[in-house]
Structure formats: structure tokens, C-alpha cells
């Protein structure tokens, strides 16, 4: 009963705002509006809402129009934004510096020719045995030095290994995780920590911190762990932030890959 009334009122309000009422009905409705503040409020609210809907429709239409214009212009070569994001910068630089590159190429050609003739006219007939002996000595000196350096590097590596692993703990498996808040919550894969009794987190300086599993979702292979270690100092800010809403299709996202330390731009489609 009540719902029927609400629906009828909404219908009246909407027809009133859209100017779909007959003059008589309109007059009647306006009297009702004046005497009933609830109806008046409904009209105000619904007007605002319809405005929002209209604006939403317009903006949505405009946005999709922009995207199709962009694609058309790229396709016809009228704007120069090539589709694969990886190559885009290269292409851009190339067209920008095309003329410079052509000049540089011709200079390179001329220089190559000149050097050819220079080398040809200045090459001595044969190196003397003295020179060869001297070069031999230099090379063996260098070899000895390189070997010494290699030994030094090994020594440094050994000392690092001892200090970072610490006594009495030997990790059997390993994996990667990312901090998701400064206080030590991290996200990682469930299979990494699932069967572990002791978990240690190692940072990029080789420092180790104790951690425990907070949540485990084996079906999605995701785990949340928390660093619980007196030596861990909370990080005040992370180099990322959380999106306030779900991404649209075609919005760019970054995937972080370890240990390649590279950022990959990909598209969600």
C-alpha cells in the first residue's frame, strides 16, 4: 500500500520536473507542493538527482566519444601516439629527431670513409718483437690483478652471508612479499608461508625480521603476514597508494616483478 503511494508520488514528481503534466494537473501539483513540505523536499531532491543523472549520461557519452576519436586519429596517422606503450617513446623520439638522425647518419658515413683511408695509409708493416714482449708483460700483470680482485670479492661475499643469515636459522624455502602498510603487514603467496613454522623477512639491506601469518587463503594463494620484531622500524610512507574505486577496463596498471626490479606497464582488459 505504502509503496504504491510512494511510486505514484515519484511518478508525479518526475512528470512535473520533466514538464509532462497537463496545465490543470500542474496547477494542482503546485498547490500540493506549497502546502506539503515533504512533497516540496522530494521535488528539490529529485531535481538534483535527475541533474546528476543527466550530467552522468553526458559525461559518459563524451568520454566514450573521446576514446573513439583518439583511436580514429591514431589509426589515420593524424596524431602520433602509437598503440603499443613500450615502443611509443622510441617512435616519438624517432619522428622528432628524424632530421637530426639523417644528418648524423650522413656524417657517420663520411667519417667512416675518412677513417678507412687513414687506417689504410698509417698501418705499419709489421709490429716489432720488442713491442710484443712488452704487451705480453702488461697482459700477465693485469691477469694477476684481476685474480686478486676476485678473491677480495669472494671474501666480502662470505662475510655478508654470515652476517645476514644469523646463527641457528636456515631458510628452507623463500619467496617475495610486499609491504601493504608501514607497520609491517605484508602480502605474499600462501604457498610460500603455508607450511612454515618460522618466517623471516629479509629487507634489501639483508636485515632479518621475525614474522607470523595473519591470514591465509590457499584457494587464492594469497597470504597476509605481519612483521613482529623489535628491530623493525615502521615505515612512514609506502611508495604506492590504494585506489579508491575499482579500475575501469583499459586503465593502465603496474605489475612489480622480483627479482628483476623492473616495472611493467600492462593493460587490464
Amino acid at each position: 500500500m505504502n509503496e504504491q503511494k510512494d511510486l505514484a508520488m515519484l511518478d508525479a514528481v518526475e512528470r512535473y520536473i520533466r514538464g509532462e503534466m497537463s496545465p490543470d494537473e500542474r496547477l494542482q501539483f503546485e498547490t500540493l507542493r506549497k502546502t506539503n513540505s515533504e512533497v516540496d523536499q522530494l521535488v528539490v531532491e529529485h531535481t538534483l538527482f535527475l541533474q546528476q543523472m543527466n550530467r552522468f549520461a553526458e559525461t559518459q557519452e563524451f568520454k566514450s566519444g573521446l576514446q573513439s576519436i583518439h583511436n580514429d586519429l591514431v589509426e589515420n596517422g593524424e596524431i602520433n601516439a602509437s598503440k603499443p606503450s613500450g615502443k611509443a617513446k622510441l617512435v616519438y623520439l624517432w619522428t622528432r629527431y628524424r632530421r637530426v638522425a639523417a644528418i648524423a647518419a650522413s656524417i657517420a658515413g663520411i667519417t667512416a670513409l675518412t677513417f678507412n683511408s687513414l687506417v689504410w695509409s698509417f698501418t705499419p708493416k709489421a709490429p716489432s718483437t720488442k713491442d710484443i714482449q712488452y704487451l705480453d708483460r702488461v697482459i700477465s700483470d693485469q691477469t694477476v690483478k684481476v685474480k686478486e680482485l676476485e678473491k677480495d670479492i669472494d671474501r666480502v661475499k662470505d662475510s655478508l652471508r654470515v652476517s645476514s643469515e644469523g646463527p641457528g636459522f636456515e631458510a628452507r624455502t623463500g619467496g617475495t612479499g610486499f609491504l601493504i602498510d608501514g607497520k609491517g603487514l605484508m602480502i605474499t603467496n600462501a604457498h610460500i608461508v603455508q607450511k612454515s613454522r618460522n618466517i623471516r623477512v629479509v629487507n634489501n639491506k639483508g636485515e632479518q625480521f621475525k614474522a607470523f601469518v595473519v591470514r591465509l587463503d590457499v584457494s587464492r594463494d594469497v597470504a597476509i603476514i605481519k612483521i613482529d620484531d623489535p628491530n623493525y622500524k615502521a615505515v612512514s610512507s609506502l611508495p604506492m597508494e590504494y585506489a579508491s574505486r575499482l579500475p575501469n577496463s583499459l586503465s593502465p596498471f603496474l605489475s612489480l616483478v622480483f627479482p628483476v626490479k623492473k616495472l611493467y606497464m600492462e593493460k587490464v582488459t
Binding site: 566519444g65 573521446l66 583518439h70 586519429l73 596524431i79 601516439a81 606503450s85 617513446k89 606497464m265
Partner: peptide, 30 residues
């Protein structure tokens, strides 16, 4: 009026130098 011809013209005439601005300041084509 969201007239496609007008939007396309503005797009075409202005996209290039905005892309240059973004790319010259740490941005990608996207």
C-alpha cells in the same frame, strides 16, 4: 553540444603538444 566534428578538431590540434609536455616530464604515451 558534443559535436563529434568539433571535438575531433580540438583533439587533433591540441593532442600533440600536450603529449610532448607529458613525455618531456616523466610521462608515457598512455
Amino acid at each position: 553540444h558534443n559535436d563529434r566534428e568539433a571535438v575531433e578538431k580540438i583533439y587533433k590540434e591540441n593532442y600533440g603538444f600536450i603529449q610532448a609536455l607529458i613525455i618531456n616530464n616523466n610521462g608515457s604515451v598512455d
